[in-house]
C-alpha cells in the first residue's frame, strides 16, 4: 500500500461517479469490450434480422427440406423447408429475452431479499432464509406448471416464473456475503454517522457484493436459457412452431448425422453468447472493484 500517491499518477477527475469509473475500467479490458460488442451484434441480428430476412419463421416449403447452407439460405433449411437463419433469429429473441428478463427478476428479488435478510440477521434473517429453503425444496417443474396453469400460458409469465425460481440461489449468496461484510467496521462507522439501515444496505453493502452478483448473474443467463429449452421440451415453454435456441439445438442433435449444420450453427450462436457473457462478467467484476485499478 503506497504511503504517498506518486505525483505522476493521474488521479481520476473529481466528481466522477462510481459507474463512470467502472465504465472507464471496463473500456480498458479488451476481451470484455469485444465480448460486449459481439453480444450487441448478436442481439441486433436477432431483433432486427427477421424483418430484413423476407421469410417468416414458419414459412414451409417441402421442395427444399434439409437444404445445405447456400447463397439463398446461408444457414440451410430444416425438415419442413423453413429458413434456418430466420428461425435462429427468432429463437434468439426468445432465448436472449428469457435470459435477460429472468436474470433481471433473479437480481431484483434475490439481491434485495438476501441483503435485507443478511443485514437484519438474527431471528428475522433466519426466518427469511428458512423460507428460501422451503421454496428450494419445492420441485421446480411443479411450481412452474402451477404458475402456468393458474395464470395461463404466456411467454412473459414463463420468464417471470423462471426468475422466481432462480432467485433463491442469488438470495443465499448475497445473504452470506452481507452477513460477513456487516461485521466490518465500516458498517459500524456508517451507523456512527447516523445512517439508517436501508441506506447502509444500499450504499455501503451492495457495492461490496456487486462483483459476486455480476459474475453469478452472467452464469444465470445460460442456465436460464437451458431451463427454457427443457420446459419447451415438456410442452410448457415456447410452443412449436415458435423456435428457441434450446429447441433448435435439440432438433439439430437429432439430425446430426445427415444435416450437421442444423446442430452446429445454433450451437455456435449459443456458445458464443455464453462465452461472451462470461468474459463480460469477468471484466465487470474487475471493473466494479476500485482496488483493481492499476496499470
Amino acid at each position: 500500500m503506497p504511503e504517498q500517491v506518486p505525483p505522476t499518477e493521474k488521479l481520476p477527475p473529481p466528481g466522477r461517479s462510481y459507474w463512470g469509473d467502472a465504465w472507464s475500467r471496463l473500456a480498458r479490458n479488451r476481451l470484455a469490450l469485444i465480448s460486449l460488442w459481439v453480444l450487441v451484434g448478436i442481439t441486433l441480428f436477432c431483433v432486427v434480422g427477421p424483418w430484413l430476412r423476407g421469410y417468416g419463421f414458419n414459412d414451409q416449403d417441402y421442395a427444399r427440406v434439409f437444404a445445405d447452407p447456400s447463397g439463398a439460405f446461408p444457414f440451410g433449411t430444416d425438415d419442413l423447408g423453413r429458413d434456418q437463419m430466420v428461425r435462429i433469429m427468432v429463437g434468439g429473441r426468445v432465448s436472449l429475452g428469457i435470459g435477460l428478463t429472468a436474470t433481471a427478476v433473479t437480481l431484483i428479488i434475490g439481491v434485495l431479499y438476501g441483503a435485507v435478510a443478511g443485514y437484519a440477521g438474527g431471528r428475522l434473517g433466519a426466518l427469511m432464509m428458512r423460507l428460501v429453503d422451503v421454496l428450494y425444496a419445492m420441485p421446480f417443474t411443479i411450481f412452474v406448471i402451477m404458475l402456468l396453469t393458474f395464470f395461463g400460458r404466456n411467454m412473459w409469465l414463463l420468464f417471470v416464473a423462471i426468475g422466481a425460481v432462480e432467485w433463491l440461489t442469488m438470495a443465499r449468496m448475497v445473504y452470506g456475503q452481507v452477513r460477513s461484510l456487516k461485521e466490518r467496521d465500516f458498517v459500524l462507522a456508517a451507523r456512527m454517522l447516523g445512517q439508517p439501515w436501508y441506506r447502509i444496505v444500499w450504499r455501503h453493502l451492495l457495492p461490496n457484493v456487486l462483483g459476486v452478483i455480476v459474475v453469478y448473474a452472467t452464469l444465470t443467463v445460460p442456465s436460464v436459457i437451458l431451463l427454457e429449452s427443457f420446459l419447451s421440451f415438456l410442452g410448457l415453454g415456447v410452443q412449436a412452431p415458435r423456435p428457441s435456441w434450446g429447441s433448435l439445438i435439440k432438433f439439430g442433435a437429432d439430425q446430426m448425422t445427415t444435416s450437421p449444420h442444423l446442430l452446429i450453427i445454433p450451437a455456435l450462436f449459443f456458445s458464443v453468447t455464453l462465452f461472451c457473457l462470461n468474459f463480460l462478467g469477468d471484466g465487470l467484476r474487475d471493473a466494479l472493484d476500485p482496488q483493481s485499478r492499476r496499470d
Partner: peptide
C-alpha cells in the same frame, strides 16, 4: 441515530476495515 455522529463520534481500532473500500472518501 440523530445522536450518533452529531453528538457522539466514534473511531475504531482497525483503520483498514473502518472505511468502505468501494466508496470514495468524498
Amino acid at each position: 441515530r440523530r445522536v450518533r455522529g452529531r453528538e457522539i463520534g466514534m473511531i475504531f481500532q482497525d483503520p483498514m476495515t473502518s472505511l468502505n473500500p468501494y466508496l470514495r472518501l468524498s
